[in-house]
Design a protein around this nucleic acid. Sequence first.
DNA 1: GACTGATAGTACCGATCGTTCTTATCTTGT
DNA 2: ACAAGATAAGAACGATCGGTACTATCAGTC
Lengths: 193, 193
Amino acid sequence: MPVKAGERLDPEATKARILAAAAEVFTRRGIHAAGINEVAEAAGASKLTIYKNFGSKDGLIEAVLTDRTHRVRAWHNHAVEQAAPGRDRILAVFDLIASWYAEAGFRGCAMMNAATEDRGQDGAPRRLAADHLAFYRDLFARLLTEVGVRDPGTTARQLVVVLEGATLISAVERDPGLGAEARVIVETLLDAA
Amino acid sequence: MPVKAGERLDPEATKARILAAAAEVFTRRGIHAAGINEVAEAAGASKLTIYKNFGSKDGLIEAVLTDRTHRVRAWHNHAVEQAAPGRDRILAVFDLIASWYAEAGFRGCAMMNAATEDRGQDGAPRRLAADHLAFYRDLFARLLTEVGVRDPGTTARQLVVVLEGATLISAVERDPGLGAEARVIVETLLDAA
DNA sequence: GACTGATAGTACCGATCGTTCTTATCTTGT
DNA sequence: ACAAGATAAGAACGATCGGTACTATCAGTC
């Protein structure tokens, strides 16, 4: 048995490697459908290491989703700061998601997918999905306040509906064109706000 | 072992009973998470009968989704015909889904949920989900043509984005209020179209 | 150079999965 | 009365699941 263990002894790197592999496998195959063995193989890790680091499959799922939502938030915050203040900052969010839809292997929003797979359960996935939606709502509300709309909270919720609707349909139909469509809807809603 | 088999010998009724039970279990627990045993128990049917009627779990899933999309289509077609011609017919669709969100046990759109659970796969769920979206698109396009908007196809796609976005968020957040929110968005889009 | 800690690989466990099969019971048609 | 067909109940099967245990191998430390 050729074994070459202990190759990378940085625990943090190992953990990150498992997280990245799990995110990829969960996205591509679905959380329920993917097994721990599959994640372990994709990560080049043993199941022992996965359970040492994350305790259980649910722990791994929660860690993957938490990591994902933080990355997405940082991603949007950065893109918004890059854009010129005003209406462009709102549209920058939708430009970003339009490019996301066009990525190979795009399968929709990981948080919404996980919450959907869980249906009735009130576990971490649903909580993280709700938090994720709240992030978008707060981000939009802040940007809408900057441009001086009358009711930022209401319009922000509208934009979240458009964002998630376009994301879902783009994933189901494999159509990156939803990004452009969402942008048009958003411009209409901003004009009316 | 008290056994009372052969009680209802109407094969069609048995099939319908299994379909209804499977739809309920799949909705409440998720398609992957629910097992055939669970469906059989909920239906008061044996696994033999399920496999005789539907061949496999995939066959049952496809039958449940097909039945569901046909019911939803009939439901919307009927509601639209009841409403006065014109803009009200479009809003009637969203009034209907608003009441749907408020139903106990609402868990979102069965077709989108099934397609989401399946992720990458190109099986029946994804095809049925795409067909379901196409139905909404065609329905809206027809109603929008009636009210004489400039580009019915484009606006129809926008309304589908709003419908599915509101449905997804309402399911994740357990908030029936998304129905009213969707209606406001739709009115704005109609005003601009 | 022995010790320690992290790891890969793998066998293993009980549970559950989808699926098939057997048996007994019931209804219907003759 | 009896045969035929449908069904419920549930045992059984192989596969796979989440999770654990064991072993061998490596890097770094003393």
